[in-house]
Design a protein around this nucleic acid. Structure first.
Lengths: 132, 132, 132, 132
DNA sequence: GTGGTCTAGACCACC
DNA sequence: GTGGTCTAGACCACG
């Protein structure tokens, strides 16, 4: 895994970790069943406390993206090919997307420019199995 | 202005205020030159601390969306028709968008579903002046 | 609040705290909108660490029973009169109830004895508004 | 025996094992005197550690549901028809039931809804011998 | 060796 | 004042 976190960022480390894992799942670097490093191992790798890693992993577990075993550590529970999302997720996500899209619009990006950026970002994510 | 903040939400009030103003600019409710209520007036309206409003306005000022004059109060500095955004903004915004889009992808939304949601949200922002 | 936790119990302190709060909501001691002590205050009251209280409160927030404000502390988000439960909750709860009821049955309690105990326990919980 | 354990669940395997045995006794699949597989056989069947099975059996022994003989293996010590439960068990069980029922009540299930669920679950446990 | 719990103390963000 | 984050280290539960 090629994940990096910035301890000096204003966004909490555990959330950076969550974001990077989510992105790795979206890009296909991590798939359903992929194992993640142990909390202690990842902590020493990043030079951060293992509790911080723990909290990041816990966030991912709450979002049903990770399954945590005492025995075998953390395992990716789902990826883009694991079925449709929960309706509540879509609703909640749309709310956050609205704010983000409003910001781009207010700063002068046109509808098509915004969609182009989104399209390009989505293209960097791996192809879905059903597409190929 | 028909702006509402939820003091019980988990998202900080000053950020809710910022988000609502950004959305108002995106939807055309606020335009370049539109005056905003004074910090004190808004604070008493919402029953929140005057410093909180100040912080929200300051965020908008940092993002070059607001101009704050000691004399004439806060004025919207730009809207979607005020020209293209700063390149740094686009870059920073794309980063945040990537994380958000990754989240949708990881949870099982297809590329087209994500783009559809974005398209629909953008349509609610109303037509730009040069479009009409 | 008359809440007690046993630091020597095998069940984690933060979960005991969660259980006591849930029971207080069920019995009507706590209602929608009731404030809870600050994490630090409760921690010193119980002679435990504030992080432990924090974790207990966080559990309750995850279950949508608590709302946590930076300003005003923790507030009860819902009680028995705040509307019907989420379907997923009912399903998950039924699973746990099955195991518990099986235990009673295996130990020799008859169907009616079990239901009697449940009925009596439920009667100690406060009357619902719509019942009165 | 048709018992299944999920090694990926968040609930410990030894407790899953205990729960499934308790449920099997409640539903009548296992009765007083029924032999259980040897710990080693069960361990290889499930692909889990032999100590884990041991711990699950030990839990059942502590709850007076199992007798473990070095010679004849594990045998079900009692079922629903083996007489009334120990008073201490009833007391301890009522405590756990209170927490579970409180949870349902706090989430908005009415007294009758809760009792209905319990009644339906108990009906799936089959008739007792003295009832038939 | 894995994660989970609890303690302790520091510093920051919010209001 | 409130809660949130991060660090640090100890001990226990699980397999």
């Amino acid at each position: 895994m090629i994940i990096e976190v910035d301890p000096n960022s204003e966004v909490p480390i555990y959330q950076q970790l969550r974001d990077r894992v989510v992105e790795a799942i979206a890009t296909g670097v991590l798939r359903e069943g992929s194992p993640l490093p142990s909390t202690r191992a990842l902590a020493t790798d990043f030079g951060i406390n293992f509790h911080t890693v723990n909290k990041g992993y816990d966030l991912l577990r709450q979002q049903r993206l990770l399954r945590i075993n005492r025995k075998s550590g953390a395992v990716v529970l789902r990826d883009g090919n694991s079925g449709p999302p929960a309706p509540e997720f879509v609703e909640e996500w749309t709310g956050r997307a609205t704010t983000l899209l409003a910001e781009a619009t207010a700063h002068g990006l046109s509808r098509e420019e915004v969609l182009d950026i989104c399209r390009k970002v989505l293209e960097t994510f791996g192809e879905r199995q059903e597409d190929s």
